[in-house]
Computed example of a mutant assay.
Amino acid sequence: MTHALQALRAIVLREVMKFMRQTSRLASAVVRPLLWLAVFAAGFRNVFGVAINEPYDTYIPYDVYIAPGLVGMVLLFNGMQSSLAMVYDREMGLMRLLLTAPLPRWWILFAKLSATALLSLLQAAAFVAVAALLGTTLPLWGPQTPMVLLAAVSAALMLGALGLLLSVHIKQLENFAGTMNFVIFPMYFMSTALYPLWKLEESGAEWVWWIARFNPFTHAVEWMRFALYDKDPGVAPYVVLGTLAVCFAAAAWGYDPQRGFGALTKRGPGGPP
């Protein structure tokens, strides 16, 4: 156990120190959702009226509605970016060395996932702080705070596990951008990050409504949104935690020595198929 905890600490500290040297990464993580908050929310403030509907007890400004979705955007982009880091480490040979450590492979992957989630939460906290300075405040403090933290941590872990799973199948850095376009944008736009489900159904966009209902990202955003107002999130926690378990188990299976990336580590990145 001591060895396992030392490995967890070393991997998390490595990722945090690497992140601290990449100040542009933090800036981009905060600026992207802030642009949405300052421009998109301002432009559509009078177009999208958010009626009194769960979890809200009164009418709210549109920027307050999309703020949890923008937090989800930060978690989503960092979770996907972690898969890019995994692919890069694999091409440089660092992952091959890391996965030969005398520890269960799933524990090494869990340590990478924990580092990803920690960085995601730090970036999300930075965004929330700057958004508050701009006048968009969220009810973070109170009896609901533990549930808000649980929802945010679970969402960060789920999206990090999804990025971990994608890193199994992305073989080269050149393939990363195309793959991400088929993951990030559909997950974000076909969710409740920008508009509630009832508006999708009311507008007649049935197929988008159905996709949004079963989109795990929708449930991550809704869990955070309901937790902020201390309301029952319904099935959202089960969907998020279930997706986390499935994605992490599939990633661990993909990194198994007998298949997936595990086979690649045995023959080397330039070896024969």
Rank of each mutant, 00 (worst) to 15 (best):
T2N: 14
T2R: 14
T2K: 12
H3F: 13
L5V: 00
L5H: 11
Q6S: 13
A10K: 06
I11P: 03
V12D: 01
R14N: 14
M20L: 15
R21T: 07
R25N: 13
A27V: 08
P33C: 03
W36S: 02
L37N: 10
F44V: 08
F44W: 03
F48M: 04
G49Q: 10
N53A: 10
E54Q: 05
Y56W: 10
T58I: 08
Y59L: 06
D63E: 14
A67Y: 02
L70P: 07
G72I: 03
M73L: 14
L75T: 02
F77M: 10
S82C: 11
S82P: 01
A85K: 05
V87I: 09
Y88F: 09
R90W: 10
T100C: 07
T100Y: 11
A101S: 01
A101M: 14
P102H: 03
P104A: 12
W106M: 04
W107L: 11
F110K: 07
S114M: 09
S114C: 14
A115C: 03
L119S: 01
L122E: 08
A126N: 07
A129M: 11
V130Y: 07
V130M: 14
A132L: 05
T136I: 08
T137D: 10
L138K: 04
P139N: 08
Q144K: 09
V148I: 03
V148A: 13
V153N: 06
V153F: 04
S154N: 07
A155D: 11
G160M: 09
G163A: 08
L166C: 08
L166I: 08
S167N: 09
S167F: 04
V168N: 00
F176P: 05
F176S: 02
N181K: 06
N181M: 10
F182E: 05
F185I: 12
F189Y: 11
T192A: 10
T192C: 05
T192N: 02
T192M: 00
Y195L: 13
G204Y: 08
A205P: 00
I211L: 07
A212I: 05
F214H: 05
T218E: 07
A220I: 09
V221L: 03
W223C: 04
R225I: 01
A227P: 01
D232C: 05
P233F: 03
A236E: 02
A236R: 01
Y238W: 12
V246E: 00
C247R: 06
C247K: 00
F248G: 01
A252C: 15
W253I: 08
G254M: 12
Q258D: 15
Q258E: 14
Q258K: 15
R259V: 11
F261M: 15
G262R: 09
L264V: 12
K266R: 15
P269R: 14
P269H: 14
P269L: 13
G270M: 11
P272V: 04
P272L: 15
P273Y: 15
